[in-house]
């Protein structure tokens, strides 16, 4: 972990106002912001931990907990909303047995999250599965995709 963090710190050493960039790179490396990484980077850079947490909790992009192996991002922009995104989302959340306030499945296989708008409104509703954009999705289609992903993990 230290080696990776030192690399990140070095990259932004000369830059002013690098808290967000530091956090983005840490998350790129680990998939989330581990507590240890914050204390380490804070010690090395002299930027107080509170600054990191202040920023990390302000922006939607940062995660303080590990996320699932597969990430399903549902767009809930206006166009998607009027094209029934909510019904699709609640169907897959139910399928994955996610209760309110929970985003990641117990087995750590899936994380289901919202994004305000991915800007692909003309093919609404849109869901991104592992960085691949799917347009005009239906719940049935997604359930199939989820089952495929489950099988891939089992294999």
């Amino acid at each position: 972990m230290q080696e990776a963090l030192d690399r990140v710190i070095e990259k932004y050493r000369l830059e002013e106002g690098s808290v967000i960039s530091l956090l983005q790179d840490i998350q790129e490396e680990f998939g989330y912001i581990p507590e240890d990484s914050v204390s380490y980077v804070s010690d090395r850079t002299g930027i107080p931990q509170s600054s990191f947490y202040g920023v990390a909790t302000f922006y939607a992009q940062f995660y303080l907990k590990p996320r699932g192996k597969n990430i399903i991002t549902a767009c809930c922009g206006t166009a998607c909303h009027v094209k029934g995104a909510e019904r699709v989302i609640s169907r897959i959340r139910r399928e994955l047995e996610l209760t309110d306030g929970e985003d990641t499945t117990q087995d750590g296989l899936f994380t289901v999250e919202d994004v305000a708008c991915v800007g692909a409104c003309s093919i609404a509703p849109v869901v991104i599965v592992n960085k691949e954009v799917h347009g005009k999705v239906s719940a049935t289609q997604l359930l199939k995709e989820i089952n495929n992903l489950k099988k891939e993990t089992d294999a």
Binding site: T78, A116, G119
Partner: peptide, 10 residues
Amino acid sequence: EGDPGAFMDR
């Protein structure tokens, strides 16, 4: 571009 429903900048 944060407005849900707009994607011209993208």
